[in-house]
Each structure stands twice: as structure tokens, then as C-alpha cells.
């Protein structure tokens, strides 16, 4: 079906930004990495900072992100993206350095780099894609895996007495004085994409004003690792991830606006009493 009266260049509403290359992404069908890549690329395009943006690719599914962004990119060792970004941003203070990391990279092997970069208040942006699983290696348990959530290494669900609590690193870094803007977003619906884009734009603007570390978490899915269709995975995320990883701003202009999720302390108390 093709309407020649409507499909004209002057009627264009939406198209893929040129800051993303035409390379076909290697991600599984329905993987939110593609959407999150596009959100970041659209903001870079709208702000006109394509020649000043420097990305740091992590280890994980997004290891090949440098193939898809039409900006300068550096590949970091596993978990070391914030350290590399610190160095690059210090050498090029008027550029926009951002890291793009998954939860296995940022919240497991790279915890030290993440926390120290945030604590030093490096003028970088950290994009943290949290899908609660190690997606690339086959769906093993990650620090962010929810309690009771099955994974390849916890087939009967994550147990607190054996595997500990899910790590809420976004709440953790919000406590550090170096972070200026900490928020949690998602990219599963058009409304979420619009909100996430506004948050990404704010982070780049804060970075231009040299305010400190900007930390944006994207609650995401891994439909292959979760063994679901993409649409089911989005629904599962809304029902199970959002109560634990609550969307919204956590730290705004250096002030914590949502100190602690009271539901979390309730859940922790319940589970401790069960044990």
C-alpha cells in the first residue's frame, strides 16, 4: 500500500537520523539497544554536536556500537569505559564524551570505575542500559537480576540467600556528590521514547555547561535472554521491572529529588523475615 499523495519529501514527519549509519544492527529483533542508539543519535543531531561527540563502547551486546554511530568512538576494556571517558573528556574539555554500557559492564566488572568516575564528578555522560541479565553471553544472572527472576545460572529464580539483592546502582551513584543529573528512563513506548529523549538532551546540555557527571539508566529488555517475544518482553518489563526500577528523575541539578524507594525497604524486610 503506497500513497503517492502523502509520501513526498515536504510531508516527512519522521525518519532515521543521519548520525546513525546505514549498517544493519547485529542486535536481536526487538532489542531496545537500537531504539536507545537512535535516541542518543537524534539528540546529537538536533544539538549539532556530531563533530564534538566522542562515544565509548563497552563490552557486551553493544560492543559494536561504533559501527552504528556516525561519531568518533573508542572501544574500552570490560567495565573501564568511565575511566577512558574521564581521560578523553579531560583532554578535550569542550567535547561531549559519553559512555554506553550494559548492566554486566557497568554494574558488575566496572563498579569501581563507575563509582569513582561519578565521585570525582567527571564531566561525562554515562548511559546505562539495564536489562537485568547478561544478554551477550547467554542470559546469565547479572547483579541487577530481579529476585525470583529465572536466568541461565539461576534457573529456579534468583535467591536472596544465595545470590544477594539486585544492585540499584543508579540510586547508589545519586548519593555521590559528583553526579549532577541522575535519571531512569525506558524506551518501550513512544511516550517513554519522548521522555528519554528529553532526558538525554538535558544531560548533553548539562555537560556543555560543565556541571559534572550525568547518569542515565534505561530500563530495557532482553527478549532472547528472557525467552520471550519482543512484545511479551516489553509487557514483562512493565509489570516486573518498573516496580523495582522506578522510572523518573532521581537527582536533578545536584539535588536528590527521590531519596529512596519505600517499596524497596518493604520488600527487603519481607524477604528477611521469610529467611
Amino acid at each position: 500500500m503506497f500513497n503517492e499523495e502523502i509520501v513526498k519529501p515536504e510531508n516527512l514527519v519522521y525518519k532515521k537520523t543521519d548520525v546513525l549509519t546505514d549498517v544493519v544492527m547485529h542486535y536481536c529483533p526487538g532489542c531496545p539497544h537500537g531504539t536507545i542508539h537512535r535516541i542518543i543519535a537524534e539528540v546529537i543531531d538536533e544539538m549539532g554536536i556530531q563533530d564534538k561527540a566522542i562515544g565509548i563502547a563497552p563490552v557486551g551486546c553493544s560492543v559494536l556500537a561504533y559501527n552504528y554511530f556516525n561519531v568518533d568512538f573508542v572501544e574500552a576494556a570490560h567495565g573501564r569505559a568511565p575511566a577512558l571517558a574521564s581521560a578523553i573528556q579531560r583532554l578535550h574539555p569542550n567535547h561531549h564524551t559519553f559512555t554506553y554500557q550494559g548492566d554486566g559492564d557497568l554494574a558488575a566488572i566496572g563498579t569501581a570505575e563507575t563509582i569513582h568516575a561519578c565521585n570525582r564528578g567527571e564531566n561525562i555522560i554515562i548511559f546505562f542500559v539495564n536489562n537485568a541479565i547478561y544478554g551477550m553471553t547467554g542470559g546469565q544472572m547479572a547483579p541487577t537480576t530481579l529476585v525470583g527472576m529465572p536466568s541461565a545460572t539461576t534457573p529456579y529464580g534468583r535467591r536472596v540467600d544465595l545470590n544477594g539483592w539486585p544492585l540499584q546502582i543508579t540510586e547508589l551513584v545519586a548519593q555521590l556528590p559528583g553526579t549532577y543529573y541522575v535519571t531512569r528512563q525506558s524506551a518501550s513506548t513512544a511516550a517513554d521514547v519522548r521522555k528519554a529523549k528529553a532526558a538525554v538532551r538535558k544531560a548533553f546540555e548539562n555537560q556543555a555547561a560543565k556541571k559534572g557527571t550525568q547518569f542515565i539508566e534505561f530500563v530495557s529488555t532482553c527478549n532472547s535472554g528472557w525467552k520471550m517475544t519482543p512484545v511479551q518482553a516489553n509487557e514483562w518489563m512493565r509489570q516486573n521491572m518498573f516496580p523495582k526500577y522506578v522510572l523518573g528523575d532521581i537527582k536533578l541539578e545536584g539535588e536528590i529529588v527521590r531519596p529512596y524507594n519505600p517499596e524497596d525497604s518493604k520488600v527487603i524486610r519481607d524477604l528477611v523475615s521469610v529467611k
Partner: peptide, 10 residues
């Protein structure tokens, strides 16, 4: 929401 950016809208 298209992860691969294949949709152009008019």
C-alpha cells in the same frame, strides 16, 4: 519505537 529505524513517516 522501531529498534532498527526502518520506518519513515509522512
Amino acid at each position: 519505537v522501531c529498534p532498527d529505524g526502518v520506518i519513515t513517516v509522512y
